[in-house]
Design a protein around this nucleic acid. Structure first.
Lengths: 231, 231
DNA sequence: TTTCCTCTTGCGGTCTGACCAGTATAATAG
DNA sequence: CTATTATACTGGTCAGACCGCAAGAGGAAA
């Protein structure tokens, strides 16, 4: 006998399901205020504990926002919170190849779009970070500038989704390889290579050459990945 | 006076924070079994309700898995569950430009990698879907084949992360534009145009021309987006 | 009448303790 | 030694209580 295992739906999952349907059907929209928890419990005939588990779950998903004394609302602005779990998953996953590939895809796409849409202001911000990288002797500061530069590039796309996602993935990976990076940067040749790559990327963005910027970004991430592997 | 609002950390967030740190520090690893809820409560000196809110939150993040009578475990395999909230956010967001752009980035990257890594088996699967599209008169079946084809392409990359993410985003957007698509497909010219685009993408994948496949995929999504806008 | 303060009310946040229904393990019978 | 049964353990759910914050009602002062 080979029966299918019965998947027992937990109450909180059921509750989320109902909210989901109301969102899909448009009955719940951005910014809407939800009834008080106690009322919701009566409506769905569940305990407050279960209702709260569902609400907390939706809170970490970035779908609702509960404020003490005020009430619970459907969020009215997308936040990066929904991507936060990613950094934890990255920390759990020893084989990070998939994450690095995803990062490469996203960051090169950012570079391409940044090249196409950048304002002069964006360009200035990038170059000020590069200046810090060139002039500073402190690896900590250089690493910070590196990070900022990548963020400025993603911000130049104007796509909030992209910005948040790149940041979470980059942070997750960076936290994981932090020590390795430090050791890598003890060799001045590596420091210089990285600097040249960053300059090249920015130049392509300056010249509004999206293709080249994307290619350069991809090579840049490949370079770091390759060096780290050898460590 | 311009004080910073005091951010009151909720208990469940605090608990998650502690788990997060243990994951980052490596004290908690994939597959580990957690102590029973009641013990955890004692360790952290919190109520079971709060502990459960934290656990449920981590469950929807795809980090832990609780099984009745058995215990709670750190997940040992990445699941797509962490991306599920995205489809809800998509449903909430009227302006989907950012999502469509993200989709374009991911799917064209998939096409590129699929072209580079595809097996003959992958190719066969793609072509069988195209055959369905060509021969079927039922728009429902054609839409299904369309969807499957895109999934086969993402699967050809072998990157689970990418597969899950593309699926969630595509599903979210498709659900949103479902009716519009139906109307679009009432015009045979559109049906044919889409078919030609799919064939072109697959041909590039067949020829292992990643650049062309990516470009074609991007144009394909642009085409659909453009047509939908005019509707 | 208007403004300001106070107080009530409503809300989310947290805790306690209890019971249920599965799973796993130890004890028992064969 | 094996198969069965009984027990302990674990997550899932519920009910009820109390706290502190926020908003709005109502009254006091200008």
């Amino acid at each position: 006998m080979d029966f299918t295992p019965i998947r027992v739906q937990k109450v909180y999952e059921d509750i989320i399901e109902q909210f989901k349907n109301m969102i899909y059907s448009g009955q719940l929209q951005k910014g809407d205020k939800l009834p008080p928890e106690r009322e919701l419990c009566q409506m769905l005939d569940v305990s407050r504990a279960s209702m709260r588990e569902a609400l907390r779950a939706m809170e970490v998903m970035g779908i609702v926002d509960s404020r003490p004394g005020e009430g619970t609302y459907i969020v009215d602005e997308i936040t990066s919170s929904m991507f936060k779990p990613l950094s934890l998953i990255i920390a759990l996953e020893k084989n990070q190849a998939d994450f690095i590939e995803l990062r490469k895809i996203l960051e090169s796409a950012c570079a391409k779009r940044a090249a196409e849409m950048r304002s002069d202001e964006d360009l200035e911000k990038m170059q000020s970070q590069i200046k810090i990288m060139m002039e500073s002797d402190d690896e900590g500061r250089r690493a910070e500038a590196d990070k900022k530069l990548h963020r400025i590039i993603s911000e130049a796309t104007g796509n909030k989704l992209l910005i948040d996602m790149v940041e979470v993935i980059a942070d997750g990976i960076d936290a994981y390889i932090k020590d390795a990076r430090k050791r890598l940067m003890q060799d001045p040749r590596n420091v210089d290579a990285l600097l040249q790559q960053h300059i090249a990327i920015c130049n392509h963005i300056k010249n509004k050459d999206g293709q080249a910027a994307a290619r350069e970004m991809e090579m840049h991430i490949d370079f770091v990945e390759e060096k780290l592997k050898r460590l």
